[in-house]
Design a protein around this nucleic acid. Structure first.
Length: 611
DNA sequence: TTTAGGG
DNA sequence: CCCTAAA
């Protein structure tokens, strides 16, 4: 109990993104009263959000990144060229990224440090330098930060090549603003990519239209560029459809495929969730830390490297726990969570987009589920939640022990009634990949997790836009790595045992019903796919539309498509100013109206005939 | 199961 | 997105 409470405090100290309500205030954010879980989730959400953000922000021209896009996820891929078509990726021990990173000390407030930290921290999301220079904490950059009290900490997570998820920055807002700055930052990658696009002008236009939407547009653009056959608004009569539609252009699927990577992560504002219990001892400590993120106790754990240490610094009192240690609180600053190692099995011929999507799926699939925070001490999982920190050995007296935090799914098995295929690699242009070959492979098996099960959380994320997260799958339980990085804790991510410890009312079968699905705004690409399909099939054959253009998007039902069409028509009819969400190109909206008019007319004719 | 529409 | 009557 106490342990939990302490953890809670710690998390309370972080500013984690909070789910925001949908623009129209219709989305329902359902949170469970379990604050611990939710907070942990939120953190994860932010992690995922960043993961996604980065993952989708085009391919960095960073050599390393380009070579190993998964690196940012701490995913090691081993390509086995022996198997030509389907490269097989085998398990590979984490070289350096299997630990959670924890740094003790108070988390500094970021006030007035945004720019600074951001720049420094973003120099490269691929390097390992981490906040070597005293930026041991992650921060979330957002105007709202300014509003927070100095007692609040922020968490910034950024992806690291070593598998540690680290806080991140906002990629979008600065996108356009720093166009001229040449920094190897994510934004830089982003920017360069955009600039290198064939039609840079269009890009810019999009990027500058709305800061908050930059991210979306950017990714969208990138994605769009992959569309084999750019949509056209030309209307020509062909077949029974007056709309463009190249039968031979596997465009239908391609588009959709591409659209798959368009997750509902719009770069919007981040909402920080402040814990209700703000007056804990931790908070008090905060006041002693300056915004430069100076480490408490003068110890620079992991400086310049990525070692993460967790060191507890002592100080203030800790009531109830231990009389003898009264006056001492264990302060922890969790720099990063350990993320399970993921294994991706994807054909060589798969596109980068596919890879991204696959990884994306893997991450969301895993993290999207019920999450749980595991605590590890010296590599051992602490199962007894009722133990006190000191009883467990976590105290100010011992600064040597390594504490690790890991994120793990709340479930220990993959029992999914929904079974959403995590991969959407099948496309018209790509050879069909068997699901097996594309599914996410985790060390302990294929992970075919349904996202539907974690609706609550995900919804929170989704509502908060950028926060889709997911978690872990499995981490290599490689104890050898531990020696490589002291202070690092190797954790078997999907530790069955660990999971078992946490009772979880899983939604086995149908026991967990009534859960609203996650909100997943249609991406422009999806809209395009939809429009194209409807142009061809009409507005009364949603099942066919689904089959034709969204066959592999399990989360899009024909009802969804129908609903989307409905909203598209509505959107097309209202003024641009009244539209919300990710802007849909006018060209598409025009097509929507045209198609809608055409098919409505057809419908009337039919009715007339039959009469 | 699909459609079609209201909520 | 959800819920459902109707087909």
């Amino acid at each position: 109990m106490i342990m939990q409470k302490r953890l809670d405090y710690s998390f309370n100290g972080y500013q984690v993104p909070r789910a925001s309500r949908s623009p129209r205030g219709r989305g329902t954010v359902r949170k469970r009263p379990d604050s611990n879980r939710i907070q942990a989730f939120d953190i994860l959400a932010s992690v995922a959000g960043n993961l996604l953000q980065k993952n989708q922000s085009s391919i960095p021209d960073n050599a390393a990144s380009a070579k190993d896009p998964l690196a940012v996820f701490g995913i090691n891929i081993k390509e086995n060229k022996q198997e030509n078509q389907v490269g097989s990726f085998k398990e590979e021990q984490f070289e350096n990224g299997t630990c959670s990173e924890v740094v003790s000390g108070c988390v500094p407030s970021l006030q007035g440090k945004h720019e600074n930290q951001r720049v420094a921290g973003d120099s490269s999301f691929h390097d390992n330098h981490l906040e070597g220079q005293g930026q041991n904490v992650i921060e979330r950059e957002d105007e709202r930060v300014k509003l927070r009290s100095t007692n609040e900490k922020t968490i910034r997570i950024k992806n690291r090549s070593d598998g540690l998820i680290e806080p991140s920055q906002r990629a979008s807002r600065d996108c356009s603003a720093e166009n001229h700055v040449e920094k190897p930052s994510l934004e830089g990658h982003f920017r360069r990519n955009l600039d290198s696009l064939p039609n840079g002008s269009g890009t810019r236009k999009l990027l500058n239209r709305d800061d908050d939407e930059n991210f979306v547009r950017s990714t969208e653009l990138n994605s769009k560029n992959k569309i084999p056959d750019p949509p056209t608004d030309t209307i020509k009569v062909k077949d029974a459809s007056p709309f463009v539609n190249d039968e031979n252009n596997s465009g239908d699927n391609s588009v959709l495929e591409n659209s798959e990577m368009m997750y509902p992560f719009k770069k919007r504002k981040f909402f920080y969730q402040t814990s209700s219990s703000t007056s804990d001892s931790w908070s008090h400590c905060q006041g002693t830390v300056d915004s430069s993120c100076t480490r408490v106790n003068g110890t620079n754990h992991g400086t310049g490297g990525t070692m993460h240490v967790i060191e507890e610094s002592s100080s203030i009192a800790d009531e109830e726990v231990h009389p003898e240690s009264k006056g001492c609180n264990v302060k922890l600053s969790i720099k990063s969570f350990k993320v399970p190692e993921l294994f991706i099995d994807i054909p060589e011929t798969a596109t980068i987009g596919s890879l991204k999507r696959t990884v994306m799926e893997a991450v969301t699939t895993i993290l999207g589920d019920e999450l749980h925070v595991g605590i590890l001490l010296q590599g051992k999982k602490i199962r007894d939640d009722s133990k006190t920190l000191i009883q467990t050995g976590i105290s100010q007296d011992d600064k040597r022990h390594r504490l690790g935090f890991m994120l793990e799914p709340r479930h220990n098995r993959i029992s999914s009634s929904y079974n959403e295929d995590p991969c959407f690699l099948t496309t018209g242009s790509q050879p069909k990949l068997s699901r097996q070959s594309t599914s996410l492979m985790l060390q302990q098996g294929t992970y075919n997790v349904s996202r539907e099960r974690s609706t609550v959380k995900i919804e929170n994320c989704a509502e908060g836009d950028l926060n889709m997260v997911s978690s872990l799958g499995e981490a290599s339980a490689n104890n050898n790595n531990m020696s490589k990085c002291r202070a690092l804790v190797t954790v078997p991510a999907i530790n069955m045992d660990a999971l078992a410890v946490v009772p979880y009312r899983r939604k086995s079968g149908n026991s967990y019903f009534g859960q609203r699905r996650i909100r997943r705004p249609f991406s422009v690409l999806e809209v395009e796919a939809l429009v194209q399909a409807v142009e061809k099939l009409g507005t009364g054959r949603w099942r066919d539309v689904k089959q034709r253009a969204f066959d592999h998007a399990k989360h899009r039902t024909y009802v969804d498509l129908k609903d989307k069409w409905k909203t598209l028509v509505h959107t097309a009819r209202i003024s641009p100013q009244q539209r919300r969400g990710e802007p849909v190109p006018q060209e598409l909206l025009d097509r929507v109206l045209s198609a809608h008019a055409y098919w409505s007319q057809q419908q009337c004719k039919h009715q007339f005939k039959s009469m």
